[in-house]
């Protein structure tokens, strides 16, 4: 009997202290107080929460620290923060207030040693490498800046490197699928999941419960989504019952 649960991770995009929603970071709408939203997801049975800080100005960086600090006082599940993490001190400040993991994206591509240093100082378990990919020819390339910059790096090669440098988890976002609600990109999720020995969180494209079931069947260890949970198109409790009915182990 298999009990080890697949994880459901709602993502909260946070800008200047508020949860925001929009497509490709354009036309952002205010969507609530992060602490209230976190509380709601926690009550519905979220297995972890991810905060993506999309605050443009570095002056407001302390806002996300303050939010995590407040959430960590009442939500007792793992918390991840991504967005704008560039140096060890950024990681330290977040972990110090009750954040469990940080997800590093462009800073890791620009200076991969950040992964080694973070893993050595804080442990691999808290260093998530976030990889945004787009299909480019017959390969998937790593993209930066929300899909605008093609680094030319093969996603599979980068995922393996990130893990060998000490990353404890990969957060894989398909920029092709993101926002479409047509389902995850199963192919690249499966390839990366088979290529690395650490858990892979699939992101981008979730539109309904079946999509999440499919991505778990293709090797993802966790599924991350924002809008379907945010707009209550999918209720986390219902989703878990649905997955359980289809023999996918979940924490109920």
């Amino acid at each position: 009997m298999d009990y080890f649960a697949k994880r459901i991770i709602p993502c909260l995009d946070v800008k200047d202290g508020r949860v925001v929603k929009g497509v490709n970071f354009v036309g952002l709408k205010d969507a609530g107080d992060p602490i209230e939203v976190a509380r709601r997801y926690n009550n519905e049975g979220a297995d972890e929460l991810t905060f993506l800080d999309i605050t443009a100005s570095s002056d407001n960086r302390d806002t996300i620290i303050d939010i995590v600090k407040k959430v960590a006082c009442e939500v007792f599940i793992p918390l991840t923060v991504g967005g704008g993490i560039r140096k060890l001190d950024d990681i330290y400040k977040l972990l110090n207030v009750g954040c469990d993991k940080v997800s590093i994206n462009s800073a890791a591509v620009k200076r991969p040693e950040l992964i080694d240093e973070g893993a050595k100082r804080f442990g691999s378990q808290c260093i998530v490498t976030a990889i945004d990919v787009k299909k480019t020819g017959n390969k998937h390339h790593v993209y930066l800046n929300g899909g605008r910059i093609d680094t030319g790096i093969d996603a599979l090669v980068w995922a393996k490197e990130a893990v060998s440098r000490g990353s404890g988890e990969i957060l894989l976002t398909s920029m092709d699928a993101d926002g479409t609600k047509d389902g995850f990109e199963l192919n690249i999720t499966q390839q990366i999941s088979q290529a690395v020995h650490v858990p892979v969180i699939a992101s981008g494209g979730a539109g309904n419960m079946r999509h999440i079931k499919e991505v778990f069947e293709h090797g993802a260890d966790a599924a991350l989504a924002a809008s379907i949970f945010h707009y209550k198109e999918v209720d986390i409790t219902q989703l878990k019952h649905y997955l359980n009915k289809h023999d996918i182990p979940v924490r109920l």
Binding site: Y3, F4, A5, K6, R7, D47, S124, Q125, G168, E169, H197, V198, P199, D221, A222, R251
Partner: peptide, 11 residues
């Protein structure tokens, strides 16, 4: 085959 670390919810 399973991933290492054992990361997530279990009984």
């Amino acid at each position: 085959p399973l991933k290492i670390p054992h990361m997530g919810w279990n009984r």
